[in-house]
C-alpha cells in the first residue's frame, strides 16, 4: 500500500556496536534528566495543608442558594432537571402554607431536591438554566467517600448556610463568583 503521508521514517536495524551495548552513555543521559528535576519547581503540593486556588470558572459541588432573608430560592420549576444531560437531578414540589413565608421565597418550593453526584458531570447547565439564581456550582468539590449511598445528595446537604444565623458560612459558601444580589 502506498503511504498516505510522507512522514514515514525507514528505521535502520543495524546490530549495536560494543559501546552502544554497554548502555553507559544512555544511562548517563537518563540520569542527567533525573538530576535536572532536583532543581526544578515541584509539580505537587502537600494537600490538605496546602491547597491550590480554585479557578474563577471552576464548576464544583452544587449549592442551593438562599436569599438575603434566608429563604430558599428554589421553586422546583424543573428547569435544572430538564437541562441536566446526565439526568442527575430529581425533585418534588409542594405548596407553601401560611406561616412558611420565612422559609420559602415563593408560593411553590422544592420539598425534595436530590442530586445524584455519581451521575453529575459538573457541566454547570443547571446553573445556567436556573431562572431564580437558586442553584450554582460552588468553588469546592464533592468529597470522596466509601459508600455509593452517600453520593445521593438531598436538600439538607445542598442548602447553603442561612445568612441570618450563619452569615460567615453563607458568604464563604457563596464564594467570589456568585451573582450579584438583585436590586
Amino acid at each position: 500500500m502506498e503511504a498516505l503521508t510522507n512522514r514515514v521514517k525507514v528505521m535502520e536495524r543495524k546490530p549495536m556496536t560494543f559501546v552502544e551495548k554497554i548502555y553507559l552513555w544512555n544511562i548517563m543521559k537518563g540520569m542527567m534528566i533525573t538530576l535536572k528535576h532536583f532543581f526544578k519547581k515541584k509539580a505537587t503540593i502537600k494537600y490538605p495543608e496546602q491547597k491550590r486556588p480554585f479557578s474563577p470558572v471552576w464548576r464544583g459541588l452544587q449549592i442551593l442558594n438562599r436569599d438575603e432573608e434566608g429563604r430558599e430560592r428554589c421553586t422546583a420549576c424543573g428547569l435544572c432537571a430538564v437541562a441536566c444531560p446526565a439526568e442527575a437531578i430529581t425533585m418534588e414540589a409542594a405548596e407553601r402554607e401560611p406561616g412558611e413565608e420565612n422559609l420559602y421565597r415563593e408560593e411553590k418550593y422544592a420539598a425534595k431536591y436530590e442530586i445524584n453526584m455519581l451521575r453529575c458531570i459538573f457541566c454547570g447547565l443547571c446553573e445556567e438554566a436556573c431562572p431564580k439564581d437558586a442553584i450554582y456550582l460552588s468553588e469546592t468539590f464533592t468529597p470522596s467517600n466509601y459508600t455509593r449511598e452517600s453520593f445521593i445528595y438531598n436538600k439538607s446537604d445542598l442548602l447553603i448556610p442561612d445568612p441570618k444565623t450563619d452569615p460567615q458560612g453563607f458568604a464563604k459558601a457563596r464564594g467570589n463568583r456568585a451573582k450579584k444580589e438583585e436590586v
Binding site: L61, I63, E92, A94, A111, K112, S138, E139, T140, T142, P143, S144, N145, Y146, T147, E149, S150, I152, Y153, N154, K155, S156, D157, P161, Q168, G169, K172, A173, G175
Partner: peptide, 21 residues
C-alpha cells in the same frame, strides 16, 4: 412528605465535611 431529609454527614459517619467553609 413524611420523612425529614437527613444530611449525608449524619447518615453516613466518616463523610468528609462538604462545604468549602
Amino acid at each position: 412528605f413524611l420523612e425529614k431529609d437527613v444530611t449525608r454527614a449524619e447518615e453516613y459517619p466518616g463523610h468528609v465535611p462538604q462545604t468549602l467553609a
